[in-house]
Amino acid sequence: MNNMIPLILGMAAVTYVPRLLPFLFLSNKRIHKRLDAFLKCIPAVAIGALIIPGVFTATPDMPMAALSGMIFTLIAGLWRGGIIIPVLGSVAVTYLVLFCAA
């Protein structure tokens, strides 16, 4: 496994270029209404696929632990909103469930 540098640079390039190209092509452009409607759906769609089904195996030995944390996020987020308390609380709940089960 000698000389990883070309591999790392190659990986960096193929990661960076797709992240960059849309900024170069779409910024400052008037976007067709249809494309705009498509782009507007991307955040919610991406989040759906990033959470499900990954969350069900977030704590592989005990899926209920992660799910308990997520239920805390759901309740705290719907009740008061915000980010910090729903997230930190969720980590704490997950920890407690794992701790009690251990």
Binding site: I47, I51, T59, G69, M70, T73, L74, G82, P86, S90
Partner: peptide
């Protein structure tokens, strides 16, 4: 348990 933070973050953003 910290691994759950990313999922919680995504959920908290979308709620």
């Amino acid at each position: 348990s910290m691994g759950v933070a990313l999922y919680s973050l995504l959920l908290a953003i979308i709620l």
